Computed example of a mutant assay.
Amino acid sequence: MTLTPSRKLIYPDSDGQPMADNTLQFRWIVLFKENLECLFRDNLDVFVGGDLLWYPVEGHPEIRVAPDVMVVFHRPKGERGSYRQWEENGIAPQVVFEILSPGNRLAEMAKKLEFYEQYGVEEYYIYDPQLNELSGYQRVGNRLRVIEEMNGWVSPRLGIRFALTDDELLVYYPNGERFKSTVELAQELEQTHQELLLERERANQETARAEQERQRAERLAAYLRSQGINPDEIGG
């Protein structure tokens, strides 16, 4: 009897779905992902992923989900095609974010909540940028429980604070600085650059004025000496 070799399981790096359905959703995904990267830039054991397939169970490639943003503590930074939990010391993402679009269905979001609850997520945040609505869940025992008041909520894991205004969501670093887009950071960098140029120009002008004063004093001293006057004795 000839034995058929077992088929090697494939864990695709893509589910064929777009990262975002529109520019608003994409902008918020990038805002969270990039700012969380900045928040933990000096911590080599915090991995931040965006639109990355997470496979929690070895041998079951059909069990998967791709959070818009996920944060995993105690895992090294680095490139990954997907997050295969059994290759990551069995550590599940502790914090996940989903940014909604009009295409997200209630049943789909309920299924994701069940998935995150079953596979160990500690904090789950959902933001709808079109309706400016923020929801959050925190693990209590084996369940993800609704966070009753999100305005002013501080993430226990991340230390970031959420503030809902009438127009949009504001998110703050633990040091009080606001999450900023790449454009805002570029504008701040340009402003800082211009301020440094102005400061350098002012310093150069002060140096030039001081040099002019020194030369004027030397000319005056030379003139006084030519008249038989010792400038060092004046005012003595």
Rank of each mutant, 00 (worst) to 15 (best):
A203L: 11
Q94D: 08
G103A: 15
K8R: 12
G50M: 07
Y125L: 02
M150C: 10
A20I: 08
A110H: 11
V65Q: 07
D68G: 04
S181V: 10
L144N: 10
R41M: 08
G103N: 10
L100P: 09
R200A: 13
R145C: 13
L170K: 15
F115V: 09
G90F: 07
S226T: 10
G81P: 04
E201N: 07
V96R: 08
V48F: 02
P129I: 06
S6G: 03
E177L: 08
Y83H: 06
E114W: 07
K8Y: 07
R80A: 12
P231Y: 03
V171W: 02
L113T: 03
Y124I: 05
L189K: 14
G141N: 11
E168I: 06
A210G: 06
L131N: 12
P174E: 09
M109F: 09
I147N: 09
L106A: 11
L131R: 14
L53K: 05
A217E: 15
S181Y: 10
L9V: 08
Y127N: 09
R80T: 03
N175G: 06
A107M: 07
G141K: 12
K77Y: 01
G103E: 11
E190L: 13
E34M: 09
W153K: 12
R145H: 08
N132V: 05
S6Q: 11
S82K: 08
L224R: 11
R7N: 12
D21R: 08
D42H: 10
R161F: 00
N132I: 09
R143Q: 14
T192E: 13
F47T: 02
V46N: 00
G120M: 04
V121C: 12
Y173M: 15
G50H: 02
V96Y: 07
M70K: 01
V96H: 11
E122G: 00
R80G: 03
M70T: 00
P12M: 07
A66Q: 08
D166P: 06
M19D: 14
V71Q: 00
W54M: 05
L131G: 05
Q215P: 01
P129C: 02
L220P: 02
R84K: 14
R139F: 10
G16M: 09
G235A: 09
R75K: 08
E177N: 14
Q205T: 10
P76W: 00
I229A: 08
S181N: 10
F97M: 06
S155H: 01
S135P: 00
I63V: 15
C38W: 04
L39E: 00
Q25K: 06
R143T: 13
E184F: 11
L170H: 15
E184V: 15
Q212K: 11
G136L: 04
P61T: 02
V46I: 02
G159N: 04
R202H: 12
H60C: 06
G81F: 05
D21N: 10
P129G: 04
P56G: 05
Q118D: 14
Q215A: 12
